[in-house]
Design a protein around this nucleic acid. Sequence first.
DNA 1: CATTCGTGGCT
DNA 2: TAGCCAAGAAT
Length: 306
Amino acid sequence: MTAPTLPTPSPQPTTSGETLHEPVITWFDEHARDLPWRRPDAGPWGVMVSEFMLQQTPVSRVLPVYEQWVARWPRPADLAKEAPGEAVRAWGRLGYPRRALRLHGAAVAITERHGGDVPTEHAQLLALPGIGEYTAAAVASFAYGQRHAVLDTNVRRVFARAVAGVQYPPNATTAAERKLARALLPESERTASRWAAASMELGALICTAKNESCHRCPIAAQCAWRLAGKPAHDGPPRRGQTYAGTDRQVRGKLLAVLREAVTPVPQSALDRVWEEPVQRARALDGLVADGLVEPLTGGLYRLPLT
DNA sequence: CATTCGTGGCT
DNA sequence: TAGCCAAGAAT
């Protein structure tokens, strides 16, 4: 606190990991949300279930469904022995129901190939259906405390602002971002996994896409974007996701009917969800092709039993 | 590398 | 109100 006898650092990289880790982790220790998948009793399977559900889906919507899932299927083997359609039904209205199918498939693979335990190796996780670069790193880091660059949309935004000095990261993850994430990764496993969770939480709570709260940010003083006067994003506008009138909307309506049905549904019932017959048929075909819907003889449909 | 794939709350 | 946005993966 006194006598700054050390020479002023002024390092080459304007933002080193050391200048970020400590304040962000300290902030996290104080402000982290108490989420069920962060509690010790969640275990690797709970972490994995949460990661599937959180893909493109807000925490608030995941919470109730997560609780139901882990209560009903406390281990991968419990889910594996269910019909895949039950996973789709229990997915409810979380969206992107293929995730439910993939999570079920991952549970089957874990049961068959890994003795029922969520694998610990990044490469093994990556080989499971529905697990990509981000989720593999997240599970390895959050569930097993390993040292991985966990690069989700929140972390990418934090890096874009704090380090690159721009408002938003590129549309798709770039090699430069991966390189930066690795360079900023703390040396020790323990610190690296905390850093992963902390930097993600910072993006989710403080360094948000809109209405960011710089006044509460632990690294505001070093943030390149803020220091530059928070310039607005320039370049091509980011493609908005349209929804109304798309096949996705039709698929959603079709699947909603099938989720509610206890017995196979006749074609006529599905026809009522959408007027336009060509698009309706295309959407239903797509669901069948994706394995989300099982066609039976006699024009009946149901959620997949196998 | 660009698209596709749900859903609902918020501004 | 009509976008905009939310812990991506697969193709």
